[in-house]
Amino acid sequence: MIRFVVVRIFQALPVILAVITATFFLIRMAPGGPFDSEKAVMPEVKAALEAQYKLDRPILDQYFSYLADLGEGDFGPSFKYPGRSVNELIAAGMPVTAELGFYALIFAVIVGGLSGVIASLHPNTWRDHLPMTFAMIGICVPSFLLGPSLMLLFGVHLDWFPVSGWGDIPGDKVLPSITLGAAYAAYVSRLSRAGMLEVLSQDYIRTARAKGLSEWRVITQHALRGGLMPLVAFLGPAFAGLLSGSFVVETIFQVPGLGRFYVQAAFNRDYTMILGTTIFLSTLIVIFNLMSDVLAAWMNPRLRSELFNYD
């Protein structure tokens, strides 16, 4: 078990290094720089700023000095928020984004899981077609359309929930969470339907029925565990995706999360901020993937004995 995790972490290191390198050089290739703006800046001022942030040095030199700082856990200073480090900015935005992602995931699992399981139990009836139609819509409709629509309906017309903010007025967390979670709910729904249908056709389900178990017991005791395995494997990538993909929703609902910093940083050519957020998120993706792999292995007795008992 420990060996499995350690091996996987070491496998991830080159991936993260590749991400760092690619991001570092790609943003440098983009036209413009952090200190360009519409207003003409005096060349001396610009030169002084660039010297302060080491931008006047050769690019390879900058790359290695960045890596060295990174080794000490330092993402460097932000170019656009003078006096604040990238570490501080991530620490400020991350909890909000994580909370939003967490609620969205809960919404996705409950709504998607339930509708997928119900659909699988009545294949090719209206109880199957209805949630699957919604799932299809959920996958197709982008969040910048869904968000404003929900705002209009529940915020303006029905006046149930506030339309923006985060943690200021009770209920203001509902709409952003649903908007962010909707597409994932749709995926979860389709995944759990497919997983359950597969398991329900297995021989051991027939065995369970032949024992005279009630249909409820057949499903809860025998089918759910195997049927929801694909869902568990999806949770890790899903949570990572929620964290890194929340900037649209954060912008629509004025949520002060990491996603907005991220997008602004890209527009501002805030090199260290872009790099810092990218590295941070890609590390999270690796960690969450690993966690859901371990969880999926734990749920499968066969893999469990191989992974956990034979180190």
Binding site: D203, Y204, R206, T207, A208, R225, P301, R302
Partner: peptide, 11 residues
């Protein structure tokens, strides 16, 4: 049933 490999719940 016929196939004891698939007729028992693996979980």
């Amino acid at each position: 049933f016929q196939d004891p490999m698939t007729c028992l719940n693996p979980f």
